[in-house]
Write a protein that binds this DNA or RNA. Structure first.
Length: 848
RNA sequence: GCGAAAGUGGCGGAACUGGCAGACGCGCCGGACUUAGGAUCCGGUGGGGCAACCCGUGAGGGUUCGAAUCCCUCCUUUCGCACCA
């Protein structure tokens, strides 16, 4: 009996893999590639079992695909820029680079101790200049194409610390450090024009067949396409002392209700508000009212409980369909960023407008009827928002919406007062961050030449090593004169560098491409390498990235396609969103003190038990509750595998054991072979297609149970039953069947428990390691049952079972079913209505 | 409010396309082996009933020879969006 010492096996085999560079790969057009990727990690310091679950899921897939003969790229890297490191620097003075690199080293060790099969030779860290150089390169390409542009935009500003705050640093409207109320401040900032790709990003979603529906829906909602029309409402009356604004443009998706538009609403930020204020009798009072609406209550806005408020501008606009003059109001619930920042209010058929009209006694006109009656506005208690037949709509009366909408739009276009338009909720992506620990934006500002891009040959614009981390000032880099003061690349005159850095989501929007060619110094990656490895075949990570990271990555892929670096649209063919690991019902976090450190588990049970448990406990997408007892159960299963293999290793081990021919086998040998092949089929499909790793493990457990029963029935007995009888020679068929079962078991265990599997494989006398073993091949002929038990239902309840050959015909099944004693008991004295023979097989008898 | 997903033993979960509900594991009970057992091996384990049998997948209805699975209504939970005109 050889003892199972998991910790020693972990060390032994991890060293062997590392020495053999077992997981490093190269482009090889003769082999089919498989790119398996887990979302790279933010180096927070310590990975807990929740993080680690994702890497194990990917590793099971990668190891399995490797054995299936694929050329598997399975890389890892670090999303290494970001605020936590900078915040820590502000508090402790440790430079972000120092803490980040230390964290990476520790976490890398953790992953290696788990035996995750990464191609560490391709490791990347986004905080290193050889990576972020290409963030800048891509930025410049975007700038050239008009996809990177600058405009003023609001940021959170803490007046006491005099610093910009990220949204995460604003807690309940106050600064995370000093508690001062945060104010908004306008700064010039860089944006990526993701909206230029809105339609394409939306349509591409239809091709993502192997993405969770949930994620596709979330992205679709986020992009938020609405079809409608932009209509101009002329502003009535001349300006008392100046030029009159000619019209207010509104966006509507319900042009069918336009005859019911009885007032116009402007967002408080709308430019006309200021114009109206300036022209009003008391501009200061006007502005004060608008400012009050703008301030709003941030909290109430977030929870959707903001009370609707507004005021009359005293001006009117002409509804271009009714030609009536209608009042123009300003309202706090109108969003400046969406549509045109102005809307036509149709209180009868929009709940928000209805609420507003009731509050301020504005006119309500019903223009859509359902059925014969047209409700009176006074009797209405709520808006009717569904489509119907138009009434009070002039020449359009009696027409049905939505069919009439294109006609109305055509009419507006003909009269030159508007046109059909598509709006998206998706907004351009603001990438400027007033932070140190990120990629410098490669732009230079010259008084003469304006915003000038840094020439490609001057990349990377490196982060200066010295910077003070006081947490004060608008941008830390602005305090480093050697960084800021440069010559203009165009005119050579004095100029200033951009001191903002990029949003770290830029880093993660293309890292999967970098892995194809991670040491390229000239380009982000070699297009040929990307053409071979991409797209990612299997991508897994947390659902918290369902929108931003995955949408930005799809955006970047298309930009790089248009730049000519890649030749496909979608970067991730198949996506798995793994569930979180909870402890005591809560997400693991340092602050809650409920973190399970994988290293503690490794010390106790070894890497394989932890890996197996995490895969067995639930399907990968599901949230799970951590359980020490469950881990122990998995450890016991490994012991059980170890014992049974060890028990037989000498008898069946060594190369050159002949296979066994089914026809020479006893019934129990054939049964073992059936189980073996049935397990091969199930485990293969469960890992490769269904990603039901938990049921893959349970199938393996069943095979092990079968091996114990089979052993019990041989002269050898099962493990722990004392010494086997001496001198007994087993039938070659027994040895063959066992060899087949045990070899398959060890190979199929290896994605889950690679260290133990390698050791057992060696113990079984195989000269080459598991990297050469291949994956067991399912043989339908062996798996095919010789006879099947067919349940027989009478009126839907199982009343008997018949045993037949698997190819028994329907007539034979029917005959045997009706002759079964249990069935007879329930059919005697009744009238046979019908007999259904279903595939399955199953016989269903109906009597009355 | 809108949208999506999910409700199965004491627990985690299984049931692939409508076909034997509860695989596999945890826990619990019993047995074997033992100086010993919190190790190991074997067996049992949805509820009720002595039994034949009856009941059972959140609740109620429907379709079907047959429903955890499909349809309708409702309840609960989780997630996403949240005044998007």
């Amino acid at each position: 009996m050889t003892e199972f010492k998991p910790q020693q096996l972990d060390k032994k085999w991890q060293a062997a893999w590392s020495a053999a560079k077992a997981f490093e790969v190269d482009v090889d057009p003769s082999r089919e590639k498989f790119y398996c990727l887990e979302m790279f990690a933010y180096p927070s310091g310590h990975a807990h079992v929740g993080h680690v679950r994702n890497y194990i899921i990917g590793d099971v897939m990668a190891r399995m695909k490797r054995m299936r003969g694929f050329n598997v790229l399975h890389p890892f890297g670090w999303d290494a820029f970001g605020m936590p490191a900078e915040n820590a620097a502000i508090k402790t003075g440790t430079h972000p680079e120092q803490s980040t690199l230390a964290n990476i080293a520790h976490m890398k060790g953790q992953l290696q101790r788990l035996g995750i099969s990464y191609a560490w030779g391709r490791e990347i860290a986004t905080c290193l200049p050889d990576y972020y150089k290409f963030n800048q390169w891509i930025f410049l390409k975007m700038f050239e194409r008009g996809l990177a542009y600058r405009r003023r935009s609001a940021v959170n500003w803490c007046p006491k610390d005099e610093t910009v705050l990220a949204n995460e640093q604003v807690v309940d409207g106050a600064c995370w450090r000093c508690g001062t109320t945060v104010v908004q401040r306008d700064l010039e900032q860089w944006f990526f024009k993701i909206t230029a790709y809105a339609e394409e990003l939306l349509r591409g979603l239809d091709t993502l067949e192997k993405w969770p529906e949930k994620v596709v829906v979330m992205q679709r909602n986020w992009i938020g396409r609405s079809e409608g029309a932009r209509i101009r409402f002329p502003v009535a009356g001349p300006e008392p002392g100046g030029a009159s604004p000619d019209a207010i443009e509104v966006f509507t998706t319900r042009i069918d209700t336009i005859y019911g538009a009885t007032f116009v609403l402007l967002a408080p930020e709308h430019p006309l508000v200021e114009q109206f204020a300036a022209a009003s009798a008391d501009p200061a009072a006007f502005r004060a009212r608008a400012a009050k609406l703008r301030a709003g209550d941030r909290e109430a806005r977030l929870t959707g409980t903001l009370e609707k408020e507004g005021f009359d501008t005293g001006r009117t606009a002409i509804n271009p369909f009714t030609n009536e003059a209608i009042p123009i109001w300003v309202a706090n619930f109108v969003l400046a960023e969406y549509g045109t920042g102005a809307l036509m209010a149709v209180p009868a058929h929009d709940e928000r407008d209805f609420e507003f009209a009731k509050k301020y006694s504005l006119p309500i006109r019903v223009v859509v009827a359902h059925g014969d009656e047209t409700p009176s506005p006074d009797a209405m208690t709520m808006a009717t928002t569904n489509y119907g037949r138009l009434v009070n709509s002039g020449p359009w009366n009696g027409k049905e919406a939505p069919a009439v909408m294109p006609e109305l739009i055509r009419d507006a276009e003909r009269r030159g007062i508007g046109q059909g338009e598509v709006q998206y909720r998706l907004k351009d992506w603001g990438i400027s961050r007033q932070r140190y620990w990120g990629t410098p934006i490669p732009m230079i500002y010259c008084d003469k030449d304006g915003a000038v891009p840094v020439p490609y040959e001057q990349l990377p614009v490196e982060l200066p090593k010295v910077a003070s981390f006081t947490g004060r000032g608008d941008s830390p880099l602005a305090q480093v004169p050697a960084f800021v003061d440069v010559k203009c690349p165009r005119c050579g005159g004095p100029a200033r560098r951009e001191t903002d850095t990029m949003d770290t989501f830029v880093d993660s929007s293309w890292y999967f491409l970098r892995f194809a060619d991670p040491r390229n110094a000239e380009l982000p990656f070699d297009p040929a390498a990307a053409a071979y490895w991409m797209p990612v075949d299997f991508y897994s990570g947390g659902v918290e990235h369902a929108i931003l990271h995955l949408l930005y990555s799809r955006f970047f892929t298309r930009v790089l396609r248009d730049v000519g670096l890649v030749n496909f649209d979608e970067p991730f063919t198949r996506l798995l969103t793994q569930g979180m690991v909870l402890k005591n019902g809560a997400v693991m976090s340092k602050s809650k003190g409920n973190v399970v450190d994988p290293d503690d588990m490794l010390q106790k049970y070894g890497a394989d038990a932890l890996r197996l448990y995490v895969m067995f406990v639930a399907p990968p997408e599901k949230e799970v509750e951590w359980s020490d007892a469950g881990l122990e159960g998995s450890f016991r299963f490994l012991l059980r595998v170890w014992r049974i293999v060890d028990h037989w290793a000498e008898t069946i081990g060594g190369e050159g054991i002949p296979g066994c021919r089914t026809e020479e086998c006893t019934e129990s040998e054939r049964a073992l072979r059936r189980k073996t092949h049935d397990t091969i089929r199930r485990v293969t499909v469960d890992i490769e297609e269904r990603m039901h790793l938990n049921t893959a493990v349970s199938s393996l457990m069943e095979l092990v149970n079968e091996l114990y029963s089979f052993s019990e029935s041989t002269a050898h007995g099962a493990p722990s039953r004392g010494e086997p009888p001496a001198g007994r020679v087993e039938r070659p068929q027994t040895i063959g069947a066992l060899r087949e079962a045990i070899d398959a078991l060890v190979v199929m265990m290896s994605p889950f428990a690679p260290h133990m599997a390698e050791e057992l494989w060696q113990m079984l006398g195989h000269v080459d390691g598991l990297s050469k073993s291949g994956w067991p091949v399912f043989d339908a002929a062996i798996a095919k049952a010789e006879e099947v038990v067919v349940p027989v239902q009478v009126n839907g309840k199982v009343r008997g079972r018949i045993t037949v050959p698997p190819d028994a015909g329907e007539d034979r099944l029917r005959e045997l079913a009706l002759a079964d004693p249990g069935v007879k008991n329930h059919t005697a004295g009744k009238t046979l209505v019908k007999v259904v023979v279903a595939k399955g097989p199953l016989v269903s008898v109906v009597v009355k």
